[in-house]
Amino acid sequence: MKRMTIALLAAAVVVTAAAGSGTESKWTVTKGGKGIASITLLTSTSGSRGEWKASGGAAPVIFLASKGQTWVRQTGGDVEVASYKGGEERTIVPALLGIDPSGRKTMKVASGPTTYTLTRTSLSASNADASNFAVRPKKGASSTISRLSGDLFGQSSSGVSATAGGRGVGNSGMKLKDGGDYEAVAALEKRDATWKAGLDQSLQEFQKDGKVGKERP
């Protein structure tokens, strides 16, 4: 009996150690079959870190996911992804940060009409130091402040375009047999996708007219 208890304890130690360890995986990103970037993804119990490297040789962009928030490393500190004025990596890397890399070999990320394919090229265990995942917010870039004024650290019209923009995550068109009306959900998503093209312009006019929102005089 005692031997069994010790064996179970030993097994628990092994399992706990495996659960606590992180991973390092490398991913290629293709658009229309053409490679456009690579991402190195580090995961740990402290959070996730994704390093985006565009094929053109531009400086890498580092994304950090911690406690439900995604941050981008910039000079002077980290800013929330919502206020990051980047390119396609703004959508792609946060989608990758949320997955378990050992359970996925490929994934697709949609951004508007464009679909990107992410393919895992390597996966290994990692004991990356916790400092790799530490978020150091830029002065004034806390989520509390952004809740109150989303444009404090973005361009003046960021609220308009960002709000109208889609993140390209999740399974649009998903249908389960659970009693829900998925046709209606799809119709609503389709409606908003149709409206999206003119929404920025409409919002500007609407807000100017009512003297409300970010476009108010």
Binding site: G150, D151, S158, G159, A162, T163, R167
Partner: peptide
């Protein structure tokens, strides 16, 4: 929503 914690 543009003023919310999750504008995107």
């Amino acid at each position: 929503a543009a003023y919310s914690a999750r504008p995107t």
